[in-house]
Simulated assay, not measured.
Amino acid sequence: MDYYTRAKRFILKNSRPLDMERWNYLFENGSKEDVISVLKTYQNIDGGFASALEPDCWNTNSTPLQTWAATQIIKEINLDDKTHPIIKGILNYLSSNNEFDGHRWNGLNTVVTNDNYPHAPWWSYSTKQELTYNPTASLIGFILKYAKKDTAIYKLACELSKEAYNYFKKNFPLESMHESACFIELYNYMKECSILNLVNMDEFKELLQKQIKQVITYDTKIWNTDYICKPSLFINSKSSDFYLENKDICDFEYKFILKTQDDDGSWKVTWEWNDYLEQWAISKNWWKSDIIIKNIKYIREFDL
């Protein structure tokens, strides 16, 4: 049985409806609207997202992080309709100042209400965390792509993009791989939309090239056992501005994925929850489906 058949078997047996529709859309000629229809079930009336869309947090209240997770799926299915209700809802949520301190959404990366629901330990609320641009940098890019240019939220995003870039330069190199990924997403959004006048894009690209090399885990012996940083977090296409300078490690990941698929069609989840073990067993399966989808996409994109 080949890698695709094994992966599909796992998805058919274990995935939630959202990941089933993602699989169908990406690999089985399924409908984009079917993905959106399921994705909308995670969207609250305020336009934000919740309810374990990001499987490590079961909070039913809208949060910036869960909303960011929705933008990743919107990007995955290439939903470009700026008037689509799901897009309008997200922009309304981001305009509401919910969990926004004037500079960042969810700057501490956790919210108080997380503690009322099953969650991974890193999503427990704490005011001791350092402020971060995860997921703000990516959300800024989403606004720049989808908001109308005459709206207050678009104008705010223009100012926030400059603030975020200045933060990135001042704190370069960043320690966090996820914060790094959000800045790469901001760069990609700005390039896609030809928004080239807010920051120095050549300088941005050059710094991001160096940032990627700072955070990728080059000790590949621990890739299958530890929670580490692989190039796929940043580079999902050979057309990426960051592919050629990282070609060798990207090509290695392609081979690594093919070699490390488990017999049930999934790949290992290299993190654990300390509490809520019953819910973690469920979330772990959800993560396996998400990893399967991302790995099959990666194999198809980087097929040597």
Score class of each variant (00 low, 15 high):
85 P>V: 04
215 V>Q: 15
79 L>H: 03
102 G>P: 00
148 K>P: 07
11 I>E: 05
83 T>F: 05
295 N>W: 13
66 Q>G: 14
230 K>W: 15
226 D>K: 08
207 L>W: 07
211 Q>I: 04
211 Q>Y: 08
237 S>F: 13
125 Y>M: 05
303 D>Y: 08
97 N>K: 10
217 T>V: 14
217 T>D: 09
221 K>W: 13
147 A>M: 12
135 P>M: 12
126 S>H: 03
126 S>C: 13
20 M>P: 00
248 D>I: 02
109 N>K: 01
192 E>K: 09
235 I>H: 00
237 S>H: 09
218 Y>G: 06
269 V>E: 13
15 S>M: 11
184 I>F: 03
291 I>G: 05
61 N>E: 06
38 V>D: 14
53 L>C: 15
114 N>Q: 09
9 R>M: 14
243 Y>W: 06
7 A>S: 15
267 W>T: 02
131 L>A: 14
31 S>I: 04
115 D>V: 00
34 D>G: 00
65 L>Y: 15
16 R>W: 07
135 P>Q: 15
245 E>S: 11
253 E>I: 01
303 D>W: 04
18 L>D: 07
13 K>M: 09
188 N>I: 01
108 L>I: 11
187 Y>P: 01
276 Y>Q: 12
136 T>L: 00
258 L>S: 15
290 D>H: 08
3 Y>D: 09
257 I>L: 01
45 I>F: 10
125 Y>H: 03
225 T>W: 06
47 G>Q: 12
26 L>C: 04
185 E>V: 01
40 K>Y: 10
94 L>I: 09
146 Y>E: 14
120 A>P: 02
73 I>K: 02
182 C>F: 13
16 R>T: 11
72 Q>V: 06
162 K>N: 05
133 Y>E: 05
199 V>Y: 07
21 E>N: 07
289 S>Q: 03
69 A>D: 09
218 Y>M: 10
141 G>N: 04
184 I>S: 00
267 W>G: 03
100 F>C: 14
236 N>I: 02
121 P>H: 12
53 L>T: 08
49 F>C: 13
244 L>N: 12
30 G>A: 10
192 E>I: 07
188 N>E: 11
